[in-house]
Design a protein around this nucleic acid. Structure first.
Lengths: 329, 329
DNA sequence: GTGAAAGCGCTAACAT
DNA sequence: ATGTTAGCGCTTTCAC
């Protein structure tokens, strides 16, 4: 707000256009003037006003990301990677947390659309039609969600789920799956891997829930799984699985002796739970970085390259899974 | 970028000034005109350009927060609360992650200063002088850090540490403290509580480290603590404590039978570690919200009310602390 | 209560 | 290679 391009121009005895060029396209200015201008810039500590620049270029120099819950390490893992990559490309990062509410998510996208060059939407909850509509407002890229016609970076959760089922089937289990939110795209993906895999391996599977993907919701979920009389429970994600583990411990159930448990996401904290959690690792760092590149590329070109990148996931076997009780193969 | 105030003005058959007023100061327009304008606004889906508005008002409608590590739930807990409160006040949130590098932190503040109405700095690492300098650039508020003359919201870690020491002293322990980063303000605060408390209770205390506050760094820290022959180890924070716990399990050390362990922060995941971690709870939600209010109030008024709010912490005893081996009181 | 007009700080033609 | 100038979309005096 203080020192403007005019101050620099006056001090360097050039026109404002030259200052602008010295900063923006250094090769369109003679070396001598450029050096002089840059010296003054440094001397005065001048930084161009993003608002003024933005007004004319139509670019804000920022990207936005909206997530359902900043309390979930899955999303903050993505966020960390997104902000790192954005910084490399010289973009600031705006963040919106919807608290798992699709309506808020939508409003967030609408607001942030005006303040950013594009928005990364990480929303298992909003319906496809709304997402398509939102896509018109700004350059949009999806994170871990697939909607026809919109660029996205997804992680192969169906594949991860297939690995989990194969692992558990080999141990002789009867399975219960703890559903995440009903309308969640991620939950559908889990099921898309789960059901065929269960059929293929000929294992029983009872579906419970839906449950909110919160730590606290692990308790009722655990209770229901116990009541269902299964030998292994597959939680929608690690946060829920951790909650299940806590409840199981409270109820004195031996994991994995009496009951095996699996999560999804491989949060750092999955490794320190009691016992360490068998789960599916998601390539968060890569996904976040890729999504930024996708968004920026898309923002540059016309709605041409609507790419969808799918990143592989990987089963991580730790200590919450073992042979089913009474299974001796 | 699409539809502007002019489109609305034309359609509502008023001047742009009236549209602006209808939106900004509804009482300076007749009710009839206002309704007509607002109807058109809704019909066209018009949203004022933040850039244009910002250029003239000098306000951006955003605040920024810079933290050392978005991978640490302590900071994302703060972030979540900050973003929630900011949204209530109609502000967007820019986030910067320095990856624990003070130089990056500084650069982040300088950059974000121009794009936000104020920045919330959460930096245990930057030195006081630099912070004071940064304060000149923009309206700055500190989170969990105290620097003379700058508004801040801090949490009473010294007090929390005193509680930990009292707890452990009563159990007959010889203590080791695993230092966080040397230059970290939070670490100094821990020590400020630790040393006098240890003296007061007449307990021994060996200081180890410094260690980076990362999960991985828990391993060497655990090894050193073991070598030091103490009966209880106080980690700088939960992330480190969780790493210590993992290492201890690998080495077959019984916690809390042979060794007691405490953390700091009370991350959700502290409750699911093996065993559940005794730690100090920090009022993250309140701190984040207060910090936003402080920042916004300060941004409004002149550098007048340089307030520092201190929020209380609380010891949470779980299962990683027990009587020292051989102590029978 | 409403409109006309002057910029906010900057970039991008268009001249030179 | 450099300068002049016309706005970007909006808010805000200043008239009416």
């Amino acid at each position: 707000m203080r020192i403007t391009i005019r101050d620099v121009a006056r001090r360097a005895e050039v026109s404002v256009a030259t200052v602008s060029r010295a900063l923006g396209s250094p090769d369109r200015v003679s070396e001598a003037t450029r050096d002089r201008v840059l010296a003054v810039v440094r001397e005065l500590g001048y930084r161009p006003s993003p608002a003024a620049r933005s007004l004319i270029t139509g670019k804000t120099g920022a990207i936005a990301i909206v997530v359902p819950d900043l309390g979930n390490p899955f999303f903050t893992g993505l966020l960390k990677s997104v902000q790192a990559r954005a910084r490399e490309t010289g973009h600031a990062v705006l963040v919106g947390d919807s608290d798992e509410d699709p309506a808020t998510e939508q409003e967030l996208v609408r607001t942030l659309a005006k303040q950013a060059d594009g928005v990364l939407l990480c929303s298992p909850g909003i319906d496809d039609a709304t997402i398509t509509e939102l896509d018109g407002l700004t350059s949009l890229a999806l994170l871990n969600r697939r909607v026809a016609g919109i660029g996205a970076t997804v992680m192969d959760s169906a594949g991860g789920m297939r690995e989990v089922v194969a692992h558990l089937a080999a141990l002789g289990h009867r399975l219960a799956y703890l559903n995440g939110p009903d309308s969640s795209w991620s939950n559908h993906e889990r099921l898309r891997g789960l059901r065929p895999a269960a059929a293929e391996h000929g294992v029983e599977i009872v579906e419970l829930g839906p449950f909110a993907p919160r730590y606290e919701d692990g308790s009722p979920a655990a209770d229901q799984a116990l009541a269902a009389g299964v030998t292994a429970v597959l939680a929608y994600n690690d946060v829920m699985a951790l909650g299940v583990l806590a409840r199981l411990r409270d109820r004195g159930v031996d994991v994995p002796g009496e009951l095996s448990v699996t999560g999804f996401d491989d949060l750092v904290y999955a490794a320190v739970s009691a016992p360490p959690l068998t789960t599916v690792a998601m390539p968060l760092a890569e996904a976040g970085s890729d999504a930024v590149d996708l968004l920026l590329a898309h923002a540059a070109t016309d709605p041409a390259g609507r790419v969808v990148t799918e990143l592989p996931t990987r089963l991580v076997v730790r200590a919450t899974t073992a042979r089913a009780p009474g299974y001796h193969r």
